[in-house]
Design a protein around this nucleic acid. Sequence first.
DNA 1: TGTACATCAGTGAACGCGCGTTCACTGATGTAC
DNA 2: TGTACATCAGTGAACGCGCGTTCACTGATGTAC
Lengths: 206, 206
Amino acid sequence: MPKKRGYHHGNLRQALVQAALSLIEVRGPTGFTLSEAAKQAGVTPAAVYRHFDGREDLIAEAARQGYEVFADLMEYAYAKGQPSALASFEATGRAYLAFARKYPGHYVAMFESGISVNRTPELAMVSNRAHGVLERAAVELSRHIAPDKRPPAQMVSAHIWAMCHGVVELFARGSPGTISPFPPEELLETGIGIYLRGLGLLPADH
Amino acid sequence: MPKKRGYHHGNLRQALVQAALSLIEVRGPTGFTLSEAAKQAGVTPAAVYRHFDGREDLIAEAARQGYEVFADLMEYAYAKGQPSALASFEATGRAYLAFARKYPGHYVAMFESGISVNRTPELAMVSNRAHGVLERAAVELSRHIAPDKRPPAQMVSAHIWAMCHGVVELFARGSPGTISPFPPEELLETGIGIYLRGLGLLPADH
DNA sequence: TGTACATCAGTGAACGCGCGTTCACTGATGTAC
DNA sequence: TGTACATCAGTGAACGCGCGTTCACTGATGTAC
């Protein structure tokens, strides 16, 4: 049974989110306009207001869906690494980059659009869920370090988060003209490797 | 002899750059408008065109001046660390963060405004000068690592660059509502420390 | 199965806005004699 | 020192544009009987 096409769109809400995502990906967070998203969904700008409070609200929904996928990916990666704390930790780092590369529109909506994570309780919750995975992995990892030379787990997670974010911003979504000297995946892999060696969690002579 | 005030501004070009910088800092790269910069400099929007080709050109000049200061700071930090390769390397990392915190307007114009570094040859050159310092520091540092377990110097510099950038973006210029668990300086210091230990350049039991 | 009706997702016209940019102009400043 | 003149950094009015948002409306869809 084919989807009915006609006066009523059928699933305009999600179509608008998709349009917003692809626009954000192509044009950047600045370039996104509600009017263009509406046009891309084959609809008048005014129709958007049947489903969203406005431009910001549409972006926020795109970001929310991104966080949802992001958190799922992180949890999946974590689970796959278990029961090894080290494997789980490394996997979540990789998942971060993988997400950024696979869902660039979502990534920009989440991290570069200026949408505050505290905009709605729902957004805050799903964002916490995502970050929580990395922190849990860091806590477990910390247990394998001698207490006297163990940095706070939250700090470890912040370091890795920062490196992931930095690699993504600088080398995975490079500004035009900037050429990355290495594939981002390799850069992140080796970077995290050296860091973990510094924590005494990987053999030094490798 | 007091600066003459009157019909002619005297130093409008630089006044516009300053206005642009403070607007970019406050409103973000999106929020910056040529008209508002002109108003802030006490001048009609049309006057801007006596000194710049337009909006983009004004942002590019702000970015260029930022790169100039940035490169100077990096070179100064590097020189201060000499003759120790390690001290120079660490100092340049710190200088990155210090620049981002001291010149937030410049930083945004340089890294978040969407201005390509290849916009003009002059911009490309000064950007290369800045990056060159970190790479030089990384090359010197590499000499202290046994060749068989030495990652490419360019990779080391990319790792540190990524971590600096990540710390700045996530923890130093935190989006509203996001609270950093540690001061960015401490985060970067410890992060680089662990990384250098991973390279075998710092004692493991510290 | 057919009809009357309520619902509500869309239209399309209109709005006010601030933007970047252009243009002919003006009048202060600096210079030549 | 004074005058005539060229320069050029600013004005201010005007432009076309696309934006986000509002509003009364319309007509397709779904439901009650």
